[in-house]
């Protein structure tokens, strides 16, 4: 550390020192970043489940639903953050606008995932479940969704990691999250480049994405013991 400190205080590798100096502020941003990434995926999944089921149940719904959700995903995030307050009747910088935007993205991504997950259940299994006397709702929750878990969790991983990156963009319009570190980095980069907060932001975002990704993988393993069962 002494070697690094003596070389230059603006060295990118100084991010650890920067973190220790601004610990409480940075941890607050990390916490905000975490729930802003996770909560929209949870809400998004709850909304995507019935929509995905519809797209699977009524095949004609699938193509238009995928087109619409696909288009939603192409709206640049910064534009969506700005558009949401007038549409939902919020103030210009309401803390709800970021989770709302991210929920929209998550739904857009997860509708297809849920529909494809349900499609991954074999016809024989569905036929057997029906013939055995499952009613449609029981069949969905006891047979189809449990079997769709691996496909759905794969989609959740993508959605979470994407959210970690999009949340940071919201930092640049003043929201409390790790994106603030990038704003700080830019502001302190006059006249000379000052990297530590920027590198710290990147490192914390990557670590957060990694932890969330591993959590979903662990959840998947917990829910699908049958996937690890191999022929003996």
């Amino acid at each position: 550390m002494t070697v690094l400190a003596s070389s230059s205080s603006s060295s990118p590798l100084q991010f650890w020192g920067y973190f220790m100096d601004h610990r409480s502020e940075d941890l607050g941003w990390l916490w905000d970043h975490t729930w802003l990434s996770v909560l929209p995926v949870v809400i998004g999944l709850l909304i995507a489940l019935p929509l995905g089921w519809l797209a699977r149940r009524y095949r004609w719904v699938y193509p238009p639903m995928m087109s619409i959700t696909g288009l939603l995903y192409t709206i640049p995030s910064i534009a969506l953050f700005v558009l949401i307050p007038p549409i939902f009747g919020l103030g210009a910088l309401d803390p709800k606008q970021v989770p709302i935007a991210l929920t929209i993205y998550s739904v857009a991504l997860l509708v297809r995932v849920v529909a494809d997950g349900l499609a991954s259940v074999s016809d024989e299994t569905i036929q057997a479940a029906t013939a055995i006397g499952y009613k449609p709702v029981g069949r969905l929750f006891r047979v189809e969704l449990p079997i769709a878990v691996p496909v759905i969790t794969a989609g959740l991983r993508v959605a979470l990691v994407a959210n970690v990156s999009i949340v940071a963009v919201a930092g640049t319009i003043g929201m409390s999250n790790l994106g603030q570190l990038f704003t700080q980095g830019f502001q302190q980069s006059t006249p000379d480049a000052y990297y530590p907060p920027i590198v710290l932001g990147i490192v914390l975002c990557v670590l957060l994405a990694l932890v969330l990704d591993l959590s979903v993988q662990a959840l998947n393993r917990l829910l699908t013991p049958w996937r690890r069962a191999v022929r003996t």
Binding site: E124, T125, A131
Partner: peptide, 22 residues
């Protein structure tokens, strides 16, 4: 229908077992 089906055993090609259950 669900009551009728629970009174009738049903066996199909490839068995159609539930892969997620023991």
């Amino acid at each position: 229908t669900h009551e009728l089906r629970r009174k009738i055993g049903y066996v199909i090609q490839h068995a159609g077992l539930f892969p997620h259950r023991t």
